[in-house]
Design a protein around this nucleic acid. Sequence first.
DNA 1: GATTTATATTAGTATATTCTTATATATGAA
DNA 2: TTCATATATAAGAATATACTAATATAAATC
Lengths: 113, 113
Amino acid sequence: MELALIFKTLGDDIRLRILGLLMGGELCVCDIESVLGISQVNVSRHLARMKSTGILTSRKNAQWVYYSVNRTFMETHPVLLDSLIVEFKKLPGNKSDMKKLAVVKRNKSENQC
Amino acid sequence: MELALIFKTLGDDIRLRILGLLMGGELCVCDIESVLGISQVNVSRHLARMKSTGILTSRKNAQWVYYSVNRTFMETHPVLLDSLIVEFKKLPGNKSDMKKLAVVKRNKSENQC
DNA sequence: GATTTATATTAGTATATTCTTATATATGAA
DNA sequence: TTCATATATAAGAATATACTAATATAAATC
């Protein structure tokens, strides 16, 4: 996992917001889509890119794909990850994303996205 | 200073190597050029980019321009900077760059680059 | 003033990235 | 089997990036 590639991958607003959301635990694509208000294709492509860099992993359950921060990444770059947590807290849009996530999760019933 | 822009700027091997060198203190363009073995134009453009992002500053002395890590950047993102130090130490080429820098500095006489 | 040295900028090409639209796949439900 | 939902991939256009070669600027020296 190349450092430059990691930074290149992190160097995008949408991907940073996605990572910020996933820091709180795994989410399915449609949740991320709802929170960010971005098209499914767009979210999917950004997720794929972060996964191919090794920052994220995914697991499939029924028709949903759940993405989460890759454990290997966390273990290989613990200090970088800590600094990301610090930086995320400083981001202006972070709070509203987290609020929106809470709303999306609350309004979500079983067998639905 | 946008976080995504910072990462985007860091997302390049040459720029990471330059930053690694400048962590040890200011250097003129020709020193960086010698250490990295990269063309002057190339080094200059990467430096300009990092400066415009706010990661570096420069001062001019006689015909030389000395670049260094921007103090404001260090003060605004201390934890990120710490993580960079940790990551740099893990980079495979870092040691050889530092050695090369020592050689370049030693072989350098007054009024010469 | 002419020349050399250090650095920056411009022009042009090749490649990468991002977005939108359309389409494909895969699972579950009717 | 057909339909609806969740996700991924492909195609095409617009923009950004990186590199090389050539040129410009600016200071120092002769």
